[in-house]
């Protein structure tokens, strides 16, 4: 479903070149649960941003369902993110003053059409992540783990092809982390493609495949089962 071909990224600041990615190649198949493992400072965030179309590669191709995303306009990429990619961030990134339900519905604000059963869908997702009784709470009244579960529900509201998670457990205690990972397992079981970027081996081991990065290159690819 996803294929990176020779993706390079170089940042230019004040005439100085800082190469970050030196040519990345890998494929992710439909329904895969993949972990990208990398210590910090190895271009992990950059790769994630490129996968999420928040950043463009300097060189190379990014094929998403055989479509080269590097050729799309900014508006087209926004639409693409809205429809096909669900994001889960390390810091949750919920709107603090807006209810849990409204947070989950937020991506639909930018959708082409607003589905009639949006509310039901949101409630169902909140049920799935175990927050069916918290829909009218404000995020600041929830624990970190609960907030991350709201963020997962939000990521799934548009039924994206790809769920992209950036250190989803990085700010959570081990119990909350386990809950989040179980939810990921379940989402995966239902057939959705998941990419998790992490530096924790425990988290990576939940995936089917681990891609390890080192110094801006793919160091190894291994199947866990």
């Amino acid at each position: 479903m996803i294929e990176l071909r020779g993706v390079k990224k170089t940042y230019y600041t004040e005439g100085k070149e800082t190469p970050v990615l030196f040519g990345i190649d890998f494929k992710i198949e439909e329904g895969d649960y993949t972990a990208i493992m990398a210590p910090s400072g190895t271009g992990k965030s950059t790769l994630l941003n490129i996968l999420g179309t928040l950043d463009k590669p300097t060189e190379g191709k990014y094929l998403f369902r055989n479509r080269d995303l590097t050729e799309l306009s900014d508006d087209e990429l926004s639409r693409m993110r809205n429809k096909s990619i669900g994001f889960v961030f390390q810091l949750f990134n919920l709107l603090g003053r807006v209810s849990v339900l409204e947070n989950v519905l937020l991506p639909l604000l930018y959708a082409e059409t607003y589905p009639k059963e949006a509310r039901e869908r949101a409630l169902r997702l909140l049920d799935m992540v175990g927050l069916g009784d918290r829909v009218h709470f404000k995020p600041n009244a929830l624990s970190g783990g609960q907030q991350q579960r709201v963020a997962i529900a939000r990521a799934l509201i548009n039924e994206p092809d790809l769920l992209l998670a950036d250190e989803p457990t990085g700010n959570l205690d081990s119990m909350s982390s386990e809950e989040i990972l179980q939810i990921f397992d379940e989402i995966h079981r239902k057939g959705r493609t998941i990419v998790v970027v992490t530096h924790e081996r425990d988290v990576a081991l939940r995936a089917d495949k681990i891609i390890t990065m080192k110094d801006g290159r793919v160091f190894s690819e291994e199947r866990t089962r």
């Binding site: 928040l54 994001f87 961030f89 990134n93 709107l95 604000l109 930018y110 939000r154």
Partner: peptide, 16 residues
């Protein structure tokens, strides 16, 4: 700024 980033990530265009 983070909120703007988030909104862009979930599909908001410049215009939005």
């Amino acid at each position: 700024r983070r909120e703007v980033g988030l909104r862009r990530a979930i599909g908001a265009r410049h215009r939005d």
